[in-house]
């Protein structure tokens, strides 16, 4: 009995030692020489492996940073300037700061704004739907509502609003990795400047049809009338293919365009709301409130915790 126990212990110990030696030999034999700085850079990365930087993952990005002469072509959208500063510190390089970006959904074709004419009955995928037909409404350009962007987001920053049928971006969580931009077959989502105090003005429509047709399909469509372009003092707005576009690098957030837009297609977010928000933001009152706000625009008083309330104005 005792002998059995002893022999068992001895056998297992010998086996363990032997295997440890084998493991050690294998580990030394197959050791891959790598620049130790890759590990260091990887340590400061967010570790999301989202691919937003254009590389296969954080390690591939780190490797590219180590091998690159400067960091001009490498930028981690998730970590932003802070992470890039750390990366630069590790490698002793300089980094150009970039303005933080956020994903913006440029469609306001809510269930109320866009009457549906068809019903989709297939796999829940915008890609499949886009390959099949124009979508359930008269608008060929707008959101299809199957949530490919939601599925593509690794940060849980996009969700579908069941009431509007449109995706909503949580700007706190959004890292501007661009996965949703790639996933959207209708190219509705755009990465835009996050803006000072998260304030942004953008055209929430990409419909390239002529005014009447666009309006018929969706009451909140950009009809390409060009009023905003004329109004803009900074030349930030261009109208091409019957749809306006605001260049966020030129936009100074004066919001004059918001006031003149006849369909309410231009959205302003995170601006302080002077009046309690209207229940259903019908284009006209929205434009009026915006106008009122625009008059006092130059030095707006920051309204803390106003963002959730004003956010909802997008409805």
């Amino acid at each position: 009995m005792t002998a059995t126990i002893i022999w068992t212990i001895v056998a297992i110990t010998v086996l363990g030692v032997l295997l440890a030696v084998v493991l050690y030999l294998v580990a030394t034999k197959f050791k891959v020489e790598e620049d130790p700085r890759i590990d260091e850079v990887e340590k400061v990365m967010p570790g999301a492996n989202c691919g937003g930087c254009g590389f296969a993952g954080c390690r591939a990005f780190a490797q590219s940073c180590v091998e690159a002469a400067n960091l001009d072509n490498n930028y981690c959208p998730v970590g932003g300037n802070e992470v890039m500063k750390k990366v630069a510190a590790v490698l002793g390089l300089e980094v150009h700061e970039k303005a933080p970006m956020v994903a913006v959904v440029r469609c306001n074709g809510t269930c109320a704004n866009r009457p549906t004419v068809n019903e989709y009955d297939g796999i829940k995928s915008c890609k499949v739907k886009a390959a099949l037909y124009s979508g359930d409404t008269g608008c060929f350009y707008g959101c299809l509502g199957c949530g490919d962007c939601v599925a593509a987001c690794q940060f849980g920053a996009i969700s579908m609003d069941p009431e509007t049928g449109l995706p909503v971006v949580d700007e706190e969580k959004c890292t501007a990795c661009g996965a949703c931009v790639k996933a959207c077959p209708k190219k509705i989502i755009e990465l835009r400047n996050k803006g000072p105090k998260n304030r942004r003005v953008f055209v929430s429509c990409v419909n390239m049809e002529k005014g009447a047709a666009a309006r018929k399909a969706c009451s909140a469509a950009c009809i390409g009338c060009g009023k905003c372009a004329k109004e803009c003092p900074f030349g930030a707005i261009t109208v091409e293919h019957n749809v306006a576009y605001i260049d966020f690098n030129k936009c100074k957030l004066c919001r004059k365009c918001v006031a003149v837009c006849p369909t309410g297609a231009i959205h302003d977010v995170n601006f302080p709301a002077p009046a309690p928000k209207p229940e259903k933001a019908v284009p006209k009152p929205a434009a009026e409130t915006a106008k009122a706000a625009a008059d006092t625009a130059p030095e707006p008083t920051p309204a803390p915790a106003a963002s959730p309330a004003t956010d909802k104005k997008e409805e």
Binding site: V117, N118, E119, Y120, D121, G122, V128, Y133
Partner: peptide, 8 residues
């Protein structure tokens, strides 16, 4: 009312 649309 609304026509169903689905892939074949």
């Amino acid at each position: 009312n609304k026509l169903l649309v689905s892939p074949s």
